[in-house]
Amino acid sequence: MKIAVVGAAGMVGSRVVNEAASRGHDLIAIVRTTRPTSLPPGVTAVKGDADDPDHMSGLFHGFDAIVAATRPAPGQEHKAVRTTTALLDATATAQARILVVGGAAPLQIPGRPDRLVLDSPEYVPQEWRTLAATSAAQLDACRAHPANWVYLSPPAVLEPGPRTGTYRRGTTTLIASADGTSRISAEDLAVAVLDELETPCEHQHFTVGY
């Protein structure tokens, strides 16, 4: 499979690149300015402007799948929907499939289908609310777009850690343990991304966690 990873220098994108390469896929790592410090053998870093759909559609031409692992800089959260929409436009033009790595905000609270993570201070402290709201808006942008997309909501806590190769998969409800902890390592999130690309499931919005 030919895969293009946008945001390949970031925490999630870099791990998706490593996971995809380990499975033998043909891929490029698309970055805006910062070249990844190290890439697996055979992976090429390409500069790309995620906000330019014409440029990106050219990069995506001939690829089977796109992984959008971009994240707005602090204070630039308002640009996230524009970037997501541009990537959806580019993917549609290239006739590829895109997996958008978003946020947990649009997920429902376990046992409380009337309440979203976005509105739950126990998962989203006030200082994170602007960024969290951005991920909910990203999902709305996907739902309004005709591109072939799938949206992955990570659990509440996503950080570097070991690759166990195991996780639980859900749809629109946050995955949490009995004590309320909701987490996954970025390494295992990358495993879930590649599993979805290789064997697509029926749900356009899904989540994973331990």
Rank of each mutant, 00 (worst) to 15 (best):
E159W: 12
A104K: 01
A132R: 09
V124E: 01
A178T: 13
L194P: 00
V193W: 00
D64I: 03
A104W: 00
G102D: 01
A192R: 06
T85V: 14
L139I: 10
V16M: 08
G75T: 09
S185Q: 06
E127D: 15
Y167R: 10
A73H: 13
R71C: 09
V31W: 00
H61Y: 10
C142D: 04
Q138G: 07
T171A: 12
A176R: 02
A133T: 13
P53R: 03
D119L: 08
E198K: 08
V12G: 00
A92P: 07
L158G: 08
D114W: 08
A176L: 07
E19V: 02
R97V: 02
G24F: 03
A178M: 08
D26P: 04
E19N: 09
Q204K: 15
T164G: 12
T199K: 15
R15A: 09
V208A: 05
A178V: 11
V117I: 12
V17Q: 04
T166G: 13
T70C: 07
V101E: 01
Q108P: 08
I109E: 00
L158P: 04
R97C: 02
F206R: 10
V67A: 09
A144P: 13
L152R: 03
Y123G: 03
V16W: 00
L116F: 07
L87S: 01
G111A: 02
A8Y: 01
M56Y: 03
R183H: 12
A178K: 14
A73Q: 11
I30R: 05
H55D: 13
E198H: 09
P106W: 00
E196T: 12
S177M: 12
S57M: 10
I98T: 03
R129H: 14
D49G: 11
L158R: 04
L27M: 11
